[in-house]
Write a protein that binds this DNA or RNA. Structure first.
Lengths: 227, 227
DNA sequence: CTCTATTTCTATCAGCTGATAGAAAATAGT
DNA sequence: ACTATTTTCTATCAGCTGATAGAAATAGAG
């Protein structure tokens, strides 16, 4: 994939290059405007059903101009999905250095992932239902996704092994828990304001569903909030 | 939408009409073969990314011949999604005449819906992520979907009102529970053999997560199985 | 054997798709 | 003032899309 110019955060100055046919009402750098437009369209119509002309119009330029910023339509999708998983990867990295108990770790994980899926504009749907991410360009994304998913599985497995959770089938429980956390997908993006209590409720549902002794939940919540 | 010939269940007899260019190795009636092929392609590649030529090839005939059985590509999708929700509608109808307690009703609902989504080949993905179902032809489908969803919501609301469940936000709980039950989507279709214990585990997770007194679960399961 | 109905075929179409080529129009550096 | 660089434009393309028109090839009824 070719190297593309990076967005300069320089704003309000008249930009280099030929002016647009219809001047931008949006002061975002062009590549950001394109990602912004593409996100919304991919989310509402899907990738395959969105044309580059639709993206260009929403971004305020002509269709061939897209290809000055992204080498292909697929490259736009790739940029978006990479941004979608980035916060979760960072979270997992920072959590791994904490050494939390499985129940507390799972509570924090559930709350964070749900919130990211509800509020991160780059989240455009379940990757499992984006078949166009098969291509080789998405290997890094899939590695990230796999890491996020296996982190959930290991939290559940650790909780079961420690006797904190019911002796469930770990693979099935991870699948179902992850699906629950993906509830915000398909729904319109939420404000952080509304997402927070819903994320807490999701984490509670998951923990209560798995815990051998649900009375321990308040203690887990306290430990999760303590920092 | 035009009226299309219905599938005769007459088999093994040589069929009326011009023979195929490449004779069928599949003894299904043509419309069933088309639906069969389309289901698999829609599930793996999505609707927009699947061409009528791909469907035709998989079904064993030429692309224009599809339109003798279905008036449009969209009509194929419509037939599939209608078949996807039919079992759930029938279940809801039969359950409504039972007058079960909210907790038992929710357990049975969760188990059934999960199983249908895991085993019904007509389930090709979350309708929320099939933007092409916006069109007017899908009104009946969306009415059905709405009914299925609101049934879940009323089970949860009734349980909360009766003091059986925690005082959760009903809308949020319904959203999250429904997402959990949609876990089988995106994953390859499961055999009934494997789906049954997973469905039970999903129902347990939901009930334990909501119940004020999780110890009541075995009693609920017994009542749900009694018939 | 002829007529009709049915099913599938071949041939074809207009419209849209993602992408390329190369000119045009601006700024920045000297 | 000139040149280089950047960004966007217009013009265009080959390929695929869903769909239509009309001929061809079968079975069945009389």
């Amino acid at each position: 994939m070719r190297i593309m110019p990076s967005s300069t955060s320089d704003r309000s100055r008249r930009r280099v290059g030929r002016p647009r046919a219809r001047p931008a009402q949006n002061e975002l750098p062009p590549d950001q405007a394109i990602l912004d437009a593409a996100r919304k369209l991919f989310r509402s119509r899907g990738f395959a059903a969105t044309s580059t002309r639709q993206i260009a119009e929403a971004a305020g330029l002509r269709q061939p101009s897209l290809f000055h910023h992204f080498s292909s339509k697929t490259a736009i999708l790739q940029a978006i999905v990479d941004l979608a998983v980035a916060p979760e990867l960072a979270f997992i990295d920072s959590e791994s250095r904490r050494g939390l108990e499985p129940d507390v770790a799972l509570y924090r994980y559930a709350r964070f992932v749900y919130t990211n899926l509800a509020t991160n504009p780059n989240v455009i749907g379940s990757p499992l239902q984006f078949p166009e991410t098969d291509a080789g360009d998405f290997k890094a994304f899939w590695r990230a996704y796999e890491r996020i998913y296996s982190t959930l599985k290991s939290h559940i497995a650790a909780g079961v092994a420690a006797g904190l959770f019911d002796p469930v089938d770990v693979d099935v429980a991870a699948e179902q828990t992850f699906a629950l956390l993906e509830a915000p997908l398909g729904r319109p993006q939420r404000s952080a304001r509304r997402a927070t209590p819903a994320a807490r409720q999701a984490a509670v549902l998951v923990l209560k569903g798995l815990l051998k002794e649900p009375r321990r939940l308040p203690g887990i919540q306290a430990a999760a909030d303590a920092d």
